[in-house]
C-alpha cells in the first residue's frame, strides 16, 4: 500500500512541476532531407548562443507541416522543415487552427543525383533514357507498348550494356515528386511520348499519369527507407543505379560514382547556376506567433540563413547544400519577419 501512495504523490508532484515550467528550447520537425542541415545549425546555435540547443525531429515534410499547423503556443512546434513549398491545403489547415502568420524561409537548393557502384560502368544519362528505361509503357514506332527494354544499351546505344536496375525513392518521399517531374515527365516530353499518349489516353492529365506510371517488373525498385538503404542495395547489387541527394553522395564518394545528366556533372556549382536540371528548393517555416513565446526562435532563423551558415563557404554548403544566390534577400525577410503571402 505504501508504494501505491508513494507513486501517486510522485505523479502529482510531477504534474505540478510540469505545469509550472515553460518551454525554453526551440522545437523543430519535418523533412528528413533538411534534417542534417538543421542539426548542423542547431548544434552551432547551441554552442555559440546563450540559448539551449533546439530539438530537431525528422519524419517527413508532410508530417512536419501537419504538426506545425496544429496550433500556436508552447505546446506546438515552432518550425517545420520542408523539402517542398507548403501547399495551399496546408496553409488552409494552418489557418483553421489559428496559425495565420507563417514566415517562409528558403535555405538553398538540394541536388538529386544518380549514382552507381564505383567499380562499375560510368553513365551519361538524359531524362529520355530514364523515361524509356523505367516507364511501364513506352512508345515504340508510334505505338504504345509495355516496356520491352532490359538493358541500358537498348534504351540508348551510347550507354553501357548493363541490366536496367534502378533504386528510386518511394512515393512517401518528397524526392520522388522531383524525380517524376524533372526526370520522367521531362523525358516523356522530350521523347515525344507525351503527344502520343495524349492522343491515346484522351487528355493531358491522363497522359502525364501514364508517363509517371513506372514498370513493376522489379527493374524500378521503390526504396521507402532512406539513402543508406539505397546504398546498401547498390553494394549488394552492383548493376543497380540509385537516386541520392547530393549531400549523401558527397559523403560517400569512395563507394559511388555519379552519372551526368544531359551532359552536366552534378555539383554545388552546376546546381547553383541551374545547369544541372534535377534540383529543388529547401525551406523551413517559422510560426510568427511563437517568436515572442520561445526565446531565441528568431535568432535561430537568422543564424540559419546567415552567411556563416548558409553562405557558399559555410558548413552547410560544405555538407552539400547548394547555397541560394538570393540569400541576402532571405536574410532581410527573416530580419523583418516578413510573412508569406
Amino acid at each position: 500500500m505504501k508504494t501505491v501512495k508513494l507513486a501517486t504523490s510522485v505523479l502529482a508532484l510531477a504534474a505540478v512541476a510540469g505545469a509550472a515550467q515553460a518551454r525554453d528550447q526551440i522545437q523543430i520537425a519535418g523533412s528528413s532531407t533538411v534534417l542534417p542541415y538543421a542539426t548542423i545549425v542547431a548544434e552551432a546555435f547551441g554552442e555559440n548562443f546563450d540559448f539551449p540547443t533546439p530539438v530537431v525531429e525528422s519524419g517527413g515534410s508532410s508530417a512536419g507541416l501537419k504538426k506545425f499547423c496544429e496550433g500556436v503556443g508552447e505546446n506546438t512546434i515552432d518550425i517545420a522543415n520542408a523539402s517542398r513549398a507548403i501547399k495551399e491545403s496546408e496553409v488552409a489547415a494552418c489557418a483553421e487552427n489559428g496559425v495565420t502568420e507563417i514566415i517562409e524561409v528558403r535555405i538553398g537548393y538540394d541536388g538529386i543525383v544518380f549514382a552507381s557502384d564505383i567499380n562499375g560502368n560510368g553513365f551519361e544519362f538524359t531524362p529520355e533514357d530514364w523515361y524509356k528505361a523505367l516507364a511501364a509503357e513506352v512508345v515504340v514506332d508510334g505505338e504504345v507498348v509495355a516496356n520491352p527494354y532490359t538493358k541500358w544499351s537498348e534504351v540508348n546505344p551510347a550507354l553501357p550494356e548493363q541490366e536496367i536496375m534502378a533504386f528510386i525513392p518511394g512515393t512517401k518521399h518528397g524526392t520522388r515528386e522531383v524525380f517524376e517531374e524533372k526526370v520522367i515527365i521531362a523525358g516523356c516530353e522530350a521523347t515525344g511520348a507525351m503527344e502520343v499518349l495524349t492522343a491515346a489516353k484522351g487528355d493531358e492529365d491522363a497522359a502525364e499519369k501514364a508517363c509517371i506510371t513506372l514498370r513493376s517488373d522489379n527493374r524500378a525498385v521503390d526504396i521507402d527507407g532512406d539513402y543508406t538503404e539505397t546504398l546498401a542495395r547498390i553494394s549488394s547489387n552492383k548493376d543497380g543505379i540509385g537516386v541520392f541527394g547530393l549531400a549523401f553522395f558527397e559523403n560517400n564518394t569512395d563507394k559511388l560514382q555519379v552519372a551526368t545528366m544531359s551532359g552536366v556533372t552534378p555539383s554545388v556549382e552546376t546546381i547553383a547556376s541551374g545547369d544541372y536540371p534535377v534540383s529543388r528548393p529547401l525551406f523551413f517555416y517559422v510560426k510568427k506567433a511563437n517568436i515572442e513565446l520561445i526565446p531565441g526562435l528568431k535568432d535561430y532563423a537568422e543564424f540559419f540563413v546567415s552567411d556563416d551558415m548558409a553562405g557558399p563557404d559555410g558548413p552547410l554548403a560544405e555538407y552539400g547544400l547548394v547555397s541560394d544566390p538570393e540569400l541576402a534577400a532571405t536574410q532581410e525577410a527573416v530580419a523583418g519577419e516578413e510573412l508569406m503571402n
Binding site: 528550447q25 542547431a42 525531429e57 519524419g59
Partner: peptide, 9 residues
C-alpha cells in the same frame, strides 16, 4: 511523441 529527435542538451 517527439522523442525520435536530435537532442543535444
Amino acid at each position: 511523441i517527439g522523442m525520435v529527435a536530435f537532442v543535444r542538451d
